[in-house]
């Protein structure tokens, strides 16, 4: 039996007296995009960080390819590309230098041409590539982060609020990149509170409220998930 690239089984996280995650379960199939929606403090980022092994579950399991993250944290991390909300990169380095640095630490060898090609794929303007990231917009930094994920060729991509702070055009560009990666077989797990963006790209959307998975939506064959449906459920979950 082939294990799902990412799955959560009755995942619970307790921080102090606060139950941050309460019996959260889901699976993401290979090449799918799964979006976890929720308001502030719903436990979205905690779920992501649990898969990175940065938070230990109090009970339940976070599994990467069927192996519990806690059993082999470095093994799990080696398969994941993680994009934090604010596209965290080094502001004193250029796009090239950032990519070279992170790739060298990940022990991945890529030629300058391959790096340029990946920056072409994310449509980062060539004249910006040698400038320090301190002069970049968030959208540009996000592109560099995506470029890193492309270069790493990680089978799993974890995204934390990837479109927050991006302008509509940048969001469109970003969504196209995600779909392309998904089509190439990358399994994508994103947490967001952008209902429209989630429905635009995701094959499945989960709704999280106060640490509990309240609803799950699945795109039908060749159809996107209904924004209205999710939006209504989201509003109801927030109101209740």
């Amino acid at each position: 039996m082939i294990s799902s690239p990412i799955s959560a089984k009755n995942l619970c996280v307790l921080r102090g007296d606060n139950q941050v995650l309460d019996n959260v379960s889901f699976t993401i199939d290979a090449g799918d995009i799964f979006a976890l929606l929720g308001g502030n403090g719903a436990g979205k980022s905690t779920t992501l960080l649990t898969f990175l092994g940065l938070i230990s579950p109090s009970s339940g399991q976070a599994l990467i390819n069927g192996v519990e993250v806690g059993a082999d944290i470095q093994g799990a991390r080696a398969q994941i590309s993680y994009l934090p909300e604010s596209a965290n990169l080094y502001p004193h380095l250029s796009a090239y230098e950032n990519l070279e640095y992170f790739l060298s630490l990940a022990h991945i060898s890529r030629s300058p041409e391959e790096i340029s090609l990946s920056l072409d794929e994310v449509k980062l303007a060539p004249e910006a590539r040698k400038k320090p990231l301190s002069s970049y917009s968030k959208g540009m930094r996000q592109k560099v982060s995506i470029s890193l994920a492309i270069l790493r060729r990680s089978p799993l991509l974890l995204l934390d609020e990837p479109t927050s702070g991006l302008d509509p055009l940048a969001i469109d560009e970003f969504n196209i990149i995600l779909k392309t990666l998904s089509n190439l077989g990358t399994t994508i797990f994103m947490v967001t509170h952008d209902v429209y963006g989630a429905c635009e790209v995701a094959k499945r959307v989960g709704l999280l409220r106060q640490g509990k998975m309240t609803s799950m939506f699945q795109a039908r064959e060749d159809q996107k998930i209904s924004v209205d449906e999710v939006h209504q459920a989201f509003r109801q979950s927030q109101a209740s």
Partner: peptide, 14 residues
Amino acid sequence: ELGTEIVLYSIAVT
């Protein structure tokens, strides 16, 4: 503060 620590850990830097 930059958030790069988490990125480093995510690429298996201990």
